[in-house]
Amino acid sequence: MQNFIGDQARDVAVVGAGPAGLAAAVYLARFLRSVIIFDTGDGRAKLIPKTYNCPGFPDGISGEDLLVRLREQVKAYATDIVQDKVERLERTEEAFTLTTAGGVMRASYVVLATGVIDKAPTIVGLREAIAARTVRLCPVCDAYEAAGHRIAVAGPERLALKEALFLRHYSPFVCILSNRPADISQTTRLVAGAAGIEIWDIVDDLVPRGSGLDVVMADGSPSRQIDVLYASMGCDVRSELAAGAGAHCDEDGYILVGPHSETSVQGLYAIGDVAKALNQIAVGFGHAALAATHIHNALSARRDRATLRAEAG
């Protein structure tokens, strides 16, 4: 673990080193602000095998490669990236304190880019299946690549139906997987049927095989095959630090932000997937630009007020 000097306050602390957090750090460093980034190394972007809807990469780019590029860009400005987890965030009168196993850091402003953790079905070799793109987590990101394939959706009824209807635009074959008939209401069955979406009840297991998955049925009937499984099971939002500092979150845990990505706590910002918005890399980049610019302007205004007071006194 990289240590840091706890007595050295920074202009800004960025918590999270995914695409949004790293982009914010680049902006802030180019504004000549002192920045420290806290990275736990388990960001969602690392799971992306290849994305084709990240602007500027017509041939696609993996999440890992994108992070490498962004980290290199951050390091060009001598910005510190600390491998440590922020365990507590507190607002004081003049600054924030961030407590980690490595010490306590003070920062005038804080940017939370802590992201979310996707929920996924229990499948042997899940990470390998995600890497092979037979299990996918975001149809907005990659439904284009799944067009025309045999697609299944797994998740709670409401979420699964919403995602299946979205995916039906891309493929003539979309089904919803269910462990028990009672898990799917008659209303959902009617809506799905009208859209040409099948519902497979009594699913017992999912087994990666070749370029797809076998859907094993609980009644012993022959397994069925699909090309792609979309896990529509929701996610756990990493908003604990924000909530602990008093920031407002919605019922799902997403941090509520204003037009400049500032939370209800002055000086505390939330960007990327942890904020209430569309969970996309491009959106995270936009959040980063808005938050960093707003922070820079606020720091400049603070300096100007201090100068005026000094001249007046």
Rank of each mutant, 00 (worst) to 15 (best):
Val216Cys: 07
Ala160Lys: 00
Ser108Asp: 13
Cys175Trp: 00
Ser171Val: 11
Gly210Ala: 03
Pro156Asn: 09
Arg168Asp: 10
Thr187Gln: 09
Met217Asp: 03
Gly148Phe: 07
Val135Glu: 02
Val140Gly: 01
Thr134Gln: 15
Arg106Thr: 15
Pro181Met: 06
Ala95Pro: 01
Tyr170Phe: 15
Val203Pro: 05
Gly148Met: 10
Ala182Pro: 01
Ala160Ser: 05
Ser185His: 10
Arg150Tyr: 01
Asp205Met: 02
Ala147Asn: 05
Gly125Lys: 14
Val174Tyr: 11
Val116Phe: 01
Ile199Phe: 05
His149Met: 15
Gly212Val: 04
Ala192Ser: 07
Leu137Pro: 05
Ala154Asp: 00
Ala152Arg: 02
Phe166Thr: 02
Ala107Met: 11
Ile176Asp: 01
Trp200Tyr: 09
Glu198Gln: 14
Ile176Gly: 00
Arg168Met: 07
Glu128Trp: 06
Tyr144Cys: 01
Ala95Val: 03
Glu163His: 10
Ala160Pro: 01
Glu145Gly: 12
Met217Cys: 08
Leu177Thr: 00
Ala129Phe: 03
Gly103Asn: 14
Ala101Phe: 08
Arg150Leu: 05
Phe96Cys: 08
Arg136Gln: 14
Thr114Ile: 06
Val191Lys: 13
Val203Cys: 13
His169Tyr: 03
Gly148Lys: 07
Ala113Glu: 12
Ser108Val: 11
Gly148Trp: 04
Pro208Ile: 08
Cys141Glu: 14
Gly115Leu: 13
Val215Ile: 15
Ser178Leu: 01
Lys162Ala: 12
Ala113Pro: 10
Ala129Trp: 03
Ala195Met: 08
Phe166Trp: 03
Leu98Tyr: 09
Lys119Ser: 11
Val135Pro: 03
Pro156Tyr: 01
Leu161Gly: 02
Glu157Lys: 04
Ile130Ala: 09
Gly193Met: 14
Ala195Pro: 06
Val216His: 07
Val203Arg: 08
Ala101His: 14
Ala192Tyr: 02
Thr122Phe: 02
Ala131Gly: 03
Thr134Tyr: 12
Pro139Gln: 08
Ile130Pro: 08
Ser171Ala: 15
Leu112Val: 06
Ala129Cys: 06
Thr134Glu: 12
Phe173Val: 11
Ala182Cys: 05
Ile202Trp: 13
Lys162Arg: 11
Gly210Ser: 08
Ala164Cys: 09
Ala164Gly: 06
Tyr109Asp: 10
Asp183Met: 06
Ala129Val: 05
Ala195Trp: 06
Glu157Asn: 03
Ala147His: 06
Leu213Lys: 02
Asp201Lys: 04
Cys141Arg: 13
Pro139Gly: 07
Pro208Asn: 11
Thr134Phe: 11
Leu213Ala: 04
Asp214Met: 07
Cys138Asn: 03
Arg189Thr: 00
Ile130Lys: 09
Ala107Cys: 13
Thr188Met: 12
Ile117Ser: 15
Cys175Gly: 03
Ala164Leu: 05
Val124Leu: 07
Val215Thr: 07
Lys119Gly: 08
Ala194His: 12
Pro139Thr: 03
Val116His: 03
Ile151Met: 11
Phe166Pro: 01
Gly155Cys: 07
Leu206Trp: 08
Glu163Pro: 00
Val153Ser: 02
Phe96Lys: 09
Asp183Lys: 04
Val203Lys: 05
Leu206Glu: 12
Gly102His: 13
Thr122Trp: 01
Ala129Pro: 12
Val110Met: 05
Leu190Pro: 01
Val111His: 13
Glu128Ala: 15
Ala182Lys: 14
Val191Ser: 05
Ala107Gln: 13
Asp142Gln: 11
Asp204Tyr: 06
